Amino acid sequence: MTLLSVRKIYQGIAGRRQMFRMFDRHAQRPNCWEGDDSPLYRGEWFEISEAELDYMFEILPPLWMRGEMFAMREFLTGSITSIFFTLKIDGRMRYFHGYCDLLDKGSPERLRNVIVERETRPVRAMTREERLEHIWSSTHDDYRGYAGERWPERDRGKRTVMFYGGRRGTTLKLLDALTDVEIAAKLPVHLRYLPEAIAA
């Protein structure tokens, strides 16, 4: 599975339950933990509330703290760990979680810069990739998965979601192959008609 290097994976502010679900939203992947899973997580980020940031800060002493960010002491995989940010954006304090590779010097600062740039856009908009990532993050595990052996070899291992097609019933579709109409149907109403943003 190939993912963009830095990507917003959820629109809105994640509550505690959603936050914990997104910490390992790739848990169902085939051959889990058999190879280097770092690319799956590196650069994923989403917004959380102040209460969730405080909760995570109090779990363990941070690995390090730098101004508006701190790193979790426990690593998810290899040199990938959680970085939590407190950022003032448009005069308001906001809170974010992201995964950074600590062997990549400066990656927390680069991720912070991407978050600030993305969240200060003048028009609220979403890229196609952000729409797909939101669908993946917000779909229950029972209704998402990975293409297995019954799929053509070129599609095996790609992400899939259940899609209700009216008279045609429910079908399993490749996430990346959803049409614009299908994407709109899977998004919550408040996100369906946002303008398309150009990926930075």
Rank of each mutant, 00 (worst) to 15 (best):
I80T: 07
R121F: 03
D180W: 08
G148A: 05
R159L: 14
G106H: 04
W64T: 11
E50C: 05
P62N: 09
M1T: 07
R73D: 08
H190P: 15
R168K: 13
L174W: 01
R121H: 07
R192C: 05
R7E: 02
V116S: 02
I198S: 15
T2K: 13
A200P: 15
A177K: 09
K186P: 02
P152Y: 01
R110N: 07
W151V: 02
G169D: 00
E109W: 02
M1S: 08
I13Q: 14
W151M: 00
P122V: 03
L103H: 13
E133R: 15
P30L: 12
G166W: 13
D180Y: 04
P39H: 10
Y10K: 09
T170N: 03
G15P: 04
T120I: 00
G169E: 04
E153L: 13
V123M: 02
T170S: 06
I183A: 00
V6T: 06
R16P: 15
M22K: 05
M22P: 12
M65S: 13
R168N: 12
V181K: 14
A199D: 14
V114C: 03
A184Y: 01
K158E: 12
F46V: 06
I59F: 07
S49K: 03
R192N: 06
H26E: 12
K105R: 06
R66H: 11
V189Q: 13
L76T: 11
T81S: 07
G12H: 12
E196P: 05
H97I: 08
E129D: 08
V6H: 01
E129R: 07
G169S: 04
E74C: 08
W45A: 09
R42T: 06
R42N: 05
W45L: 06
L187T: 08
K8A: 03
